[in-house]
């Protein structure tokens, strides 16, 4: 069953007086439970594609359907609600809230969802234990290493059981060992919790972990490689 279906998605940006084509008509579908990498060099359109799938940006034309939700028919407010309940994001720069502790950062999404505080705290602690940060609940982002911060970001992305987690170059700021550990952890979660992961990356390490590797070049899908298990 497909969780994401994109049909002829196009997007251009105005950069000064120049119109830049970020996506030139992308058509692809991604199955539920997938561990997929969108690979390509900088400027190829992979981050734009990820933003489109996450409902952060709107396509100029074409259609995107995620878990049965047709984006072109949805208002900004409905898209925000969809992101809150169905999409988890992991960013290259971690993007944790600096004034909140690790556990509070994880709790924040649940707070927006209206989950009761006791349940919030309990679930946040369990997920932090799962990502190997047990005992670091009260540390603020500045007191955590890059790898630990990204683990908190992953914990925040999956804590509310989203349908899909979108990770924009999640290992780009990490050394290869830490990056590998993070990928192992995400793969485990993908297998155990059946959460769909889609990465954008240009790193070989991430590509090696992906079960499906979609090469994006000049705003188009250049190659689509499905691997075994």
């Amino acid at each position: 069953m497909n969780i994401v279906e994109c049909a002829d998605v196009r997007k251009t940006y105005q950069q000064g007086k120049v119109v830049v084509t970020a996506l030139g008509g992308v058509t692809l579908s991604i199955k539920k439970g997938g561990f997929v990498a969108l690979a390509g060099p900088s400027g190829s359109g992979k981050t734009t594609m990820l933003n489109m799938i996450g409902g952060l940006d709107q396509a100029d034309s074409g259609s995107i359907v995620m878990d049965g939700n047709v984006y072109e028919e949805m208002t900004q407010s409905e898209l925000a609600t969809l992101r809150l309940y169905k999409v988890g994001f992991v960013f290259q720069a971690y993007n944790l809230i600096p004034v909140l502790s690790a556990v509070e950062n994880v709790e924040y999404v649940m707070l927006l969802q209206g989950v009761a505080s006791v349940e919030r705290r309990e679930r946040a602690r369990i997920i932090l234990d799962d990502v190997g940060l047990g005992g670091m609940y009260d540390r603020r982002p500045a007191e955590l290493s890059g790898g630990q911060q990204q683990r908190v970001a992953v914990a925040r992305a999956i804590v509310s059981d989203p349908s899909i987690v979108l990770a924009d170059e999640p290992t780009a700021n990490l050394d290869s060992r830490t990056g590998q550990g993070l990928l192992e952890m995400m793969k485990e979660m993908n297998e155990e919790k059946k959460v769909t992961f889609i990465f954008s990356t240009h790193e070989k390490l991430v590509m090696d972990y992906a079960r499906r590797l979609i090469h994006v070049r000049d705003g188009l899908v250049a190659d689509d490689e499905v691997r075994e298990g």
Partner: peptide, 16 residues
């Protein structure tokens, strides 16, 4: 600004 972008990405409504 990036933090507000994060809030919106996480699903925060403009009113919030």
């Amino acid at each position: 600004i990036r933090e507000f972008g994060l809030f919106k990405a996480l699903g925060m409504k403009p009113w919030w």
